[in-house]
């Protein structure tokens, strides 16, 4: 499975140019190229057989999907059998920023597309009222009360206690009697918070 010749014209020039550098520089560069190819859509590093590289990329995405599902069980369950492919499509060229943030970013992306399942919407609003997440750095605890809405779900947090004020509407077949049936527009999350 080794020894495939480097694809013509696809050799990493930098690696060749740096061949005379201290060895750690060269190893560091080659490791960085491999990781970039696996998780960030980087070009395949010279000499690696494409089949095993693709299998590794797929295995990493499956593992990541499982870890994110552990942090976002309702989001994953809400997508059901579609979870692995939904996650993989979204994550293919996005390096992980940790399972909590990966799932959070995906939930927000699905909300923007109107594709967030009800259980995922409820999980998202419950998170949004507890932690403040700017999409770029580690979420931090909110010090003030907050309300969040997504996909029709509404949650509030006061003094650290979270209450789901309104569940996200289910498709009609699953709608419990007395459902209020006034869904918010997807992506209309609004904040009353610090």
């Amino acid at each position: 499975m080794t020894g495939a010749p480097p694809p013509a014209g696809n050799g990493p020039r930098a690696a060749v140019d740096r061949a005379g550098d201290p060895t750690t520089g060269r190893l560091a560069q080659r490791q960085a190229e491999l990781v970039a190819a696996l998780v960030a859509g980087g070009p395949p590093p010279a000499g690696f057989a494409p089949g095993p590289l693709a299998a590794t990329r797929a295995a990493l995405l499956r593992k990541r999907a499982g870890e994110v599902a552990r942090h976002w069980p309702l989001l994953a369950a809400g997508l059901g059998a579609g979870w692995p492919s939904t996650f993989a499509d979204w994550a293919a060229n996005r390096p992980t920023v940790g399972s909590l943030r990966d799932g959070w970013d995906l939930a927000r992306a699905l909300r923007e597309r109107g594709a967030l399942p009800p259980a995922g919407a409820e999980e998202l609003v419950a998170r949004e009222v507890v932690l403040r997440y700017d999409g770029r750095s580690t979420p931090r605890p909110r010090r003030l009360p907050a309300v969040a809405r997504a996909g029709g779900a509404v949650a509030a947090q006061i003094a650290g206690r979270v209450r789901l004020l309104r569940p996200a509407p289910r498709p009609p077949a699953a709608l419990p009697a007395g459902g209020d049936g006034v869904p918010d527009a997807a992506g209309s999350a609004a904040w009353i918070s610090d």
Binding site: T23, T24, R26, L27, A28, Q29, R30, Q31, A32, E33, L34, V35, A36, L38, V39, A40, A59, L60, K63, R64, E67, P95, T96, V97
Partner: peptide, 18 residues
């Protein structure tokens, strides 16, 4: 991890002296 990116899993080393 390498180059500032997390691989998210264990990756093999080249079996080299380096």
């Amino acid at each position: 991890r390498a180059g500032g990116l997390e691989a998210g899993h264990l990756l093999p080393l080249p079996r080299s002296r380096e």
